[in-house]
Design a protein around this nucleic acid. Structure first.
Lengths: 207, 207
DNA sequence: TGCGAAATAGACAGATCGGTCTGTCCTTGT
DNA sequence: ACAAGGACAGACCGATCTGTCTATTTCGCA
């Protein structure tokens, strides 16, 4: 079973602009993740990235496009990291599903975790036409598909249903870890996921 | 077992200002819930509430205080609604815990649901000192305590742990319902909660 | 009716915002 | 050296923002 492919890569404009574009995306992530999207103006992003305004608008047509591009890049990195993590685990007994929770538990413990960039984007740009919301929803759909595939692989009788339950736990983890500023929720989510797998008769080791 | 008391009520300033204050809070909720907090300026709130700027600043010292007051009010209304709902259900077999999920499923189906006001507030005002974040965290803590009390009442062997798991499901519901614009997640959360209660040996009826 | 309190309209202040634009400088390749 | 492309600094535009303030109007009550 192939791990779901990452979304189509962002197009890097031709020429020497990649380092500038990368600097913008890096600065954007650092600032937006900590302070929020609307709270940070582009001048602040520019100063942090050491990039001129015209250069930003050369790479991204608007602030929203910058945000959407950041989300797509972030989504790809997450998908790649998950893919590696999953590939390192045998597919039996729901171990791959639990590996996702292991990955999440580590991610929320990282120094760069300041809450879910995707949830925040959809919150601040809630109109269905807003690019950030679209990018956020697309990524969460990708996660859902991945969970369903792994549930099917693990032998769940209703993979879509199990995937839905597991995604609830993951989203809950992201929110509560952010609110409580403590990684406790991630461990609880993994335990709960193990309980669900056991209840499903997928003989994972309830750790 | 007493249902946990609601937080201390907001102080209504003396005199005839309550209708103006109420109008402000109502307008704030309608606008902020749909469009986000920073995306809506106070002039827009004022226009919708038909209230003058000075009146707003008479009742609330700042935009942040308006938001925090709104969250506290919302939190009280939710706590009261939950309290009534829970009181109408016998405490045996985890029925009260499932009643919370029933209430949530109805709430997210309501015409006024545009995502969780508390999660959004903490996202847009992420600094620990920000009043909106403090109000949001306080409310979520209240929910956690309520879940733990009901878990204890239902006979859970580790009420805190069960409460943590159930809160994950609830937060996941709020996020996914908002992102997916569909109430499916709420039903899945209730089913999953029932599964957890059954796995805990709390003989709720897995519906 | 008169008075005091509450509320108003709206100007103001200083700041920030996203995006546009010009002229200049820098880098790279031939 | 020259040309082309990329990037820059920063002025500019029109708009919006939160909060302060003045003068006036409205409301409620005796």
């Amino acid at each position: 079973m192939a791990v779901p492919s990452a979304p189509v890569p962002d197009e890097t404009p031709p020429g020497r602009s990649s380092p500038k574009r990368d600097a913008l995306l890096r600065a954007a992530r650092e600032l937006f993740s900590r302070q929020g999207y609307r709270a940070v103006g582009i001048d602040t992003v520019l100063a942090r990235a050491a990039v001129a305004k015209m250069t930003l608008y050369k790479h991204f047509g608007s602030k929203e496009e910058l945000i959407a591009a950041l989300l797509r890049q972030q989504g790809q990195e997450i998908a790649a990291a998950l893919g590696r993590r999953i590939a390192a685990v045998p597919p039996e007994g729901g171990q791959r599903l639990l590996a996702m929770f292991d990955w999440l538990a580590e991610a929320v413990r990282g120094p760069d975790f300041h809450g879910c960039l995707f949830i925040k984007a959809a919150s601040e740009y809630p109109d269905p036409g807003d690019l950030p919301r679209q990018a956020a929803v697309a990524f969460k759909d990708t996660c859902r598909v991945l969970l369903a595939d792994l549930s099917r692989e693990a032998g769940a009788t209703d993979p879509e249903r199990l995937a839905g339950a597991l995604q609830l736990l993951m989203e809950g983890t992201l929110v509560l870890t952010f609110l409580q500023r403590s990684p406790e929720a991630a461990d609880q989510a993994r335990r709960t996921a193990a309980t669900l797998l056991a209840a499903e008769g997928i003989l994972a080791d309830p750790a």
